[in-house]
């Protein structure tokens, strides 16, 4: 083994080691989302749709929402607007990676952008290598591994979903539980409490006025309007 090969090998090994916690999370969470797709998605070929949905979007929240969207045939304008709001945070991540990715060829950079999830972002920002070939190898290996974990988790869950040894009635609560878990963790941080209360209050009002099927779009518009209206006050408070 030449020194150069050894270096690439050791970089890949390091990437594999740092991706292991993500593997646990992605395979398990993907599995739950895959089961949901089979029991609730009404797609006909859940394993195929599991692989397609997990491979293209690589987004946990979307993955849990897809079964409902599939079942009801949600209008595409709503799919686009909801996806935009749910994944808006992704538009921020690249800013701190521009420098680290600048030497990487454009098609590899396209793959890194495509696979930029919360967890992969966190690992890439913390890359131990300075911008350059070693960093490129490290980030690409991480991106491919995380992508693969997610696809495997969802596909396995979609496959297992049709072979549950008990009734799957009620399994859709997994999605509610996922959002409750994220919300619980977010409101530990004091800064997140006000936006969470605005979101929750608006959601409750929209639920009562419009019902669960039509509540999301008016609620999102109202939430953003409230945030913009109080921007001067709340932005200053957050800065203190």
């Amino acid at each position: 083994m030449t020194p150069a090969e050894h270096t690439v090998f050791s970089i890949r090994k390091r990437a594999l080691a740092s991706s292991l916690p993500v593997m646990m999370g992605y395979v398990a969470m993907g599995f739950a989302a895959g089961v949901l797709l089979t029991t609730r998605g009404e797609t006909g070929h859940p394993v195929f749709w599991g692989i397609l949905t997990s491979m293209t979007s690589i987004s946990g929240t979307l993955q849990f929402l897809f079964p409902g969207w599939f079942r009801t045939g949600l209008p595409l304008t709503e799919v686009a607007l909801l996806t935009f709001c749910i994944n808006f945070r992704y538009a921020m991540y690249g800013f701190s990676l521009l420098g680290k990715f600048q030497d990487i060829s454009w098609w590899k950079r396209c793959y890194l952008v495509w696979t930029l999830t919360d967890e992969t972002y966190a690992l890439e920002v913390a890359s131990p290598y300075p911008a350059g070939p070693a960093n490129s190898t490290y980030c690409l290996t991480l991106a491919m591994l995380d992508h693969l974990y997610w696809i495997i988790g969802v596909a396995a869950g979609a496959f297992a979903g049709s072979r549950l040894p008990f009734s799957g009635k009620g399994v859709e609560f997994a999605m509610t539980a996922l959002f409750l878990v994220i919300l619980t963790d977010q409101v530990r941080n004091r800064e997140n409490r006000k936006p969470a209360i605005v979101g929750g209050g608006t959601a409750l009002a929209a639920l009562l006025v419009f019902g669960p099927e039509k509540m999301l779009i008016p609620a999102i518009i109202l939430i953003v309007t409230i945030f913009l209206f109080f921007r001067k006050k709340w932005d200053r408070e957050a800065a203190q």
Partner: peptide
Amino acid sequence: YISKMLSPAIIALLTFYC
């Protein structure tokens, strides 16, 4: 500012939606 505020609000909204 919007990005920082939107994330917890959307999660709270989705919880009620569920």
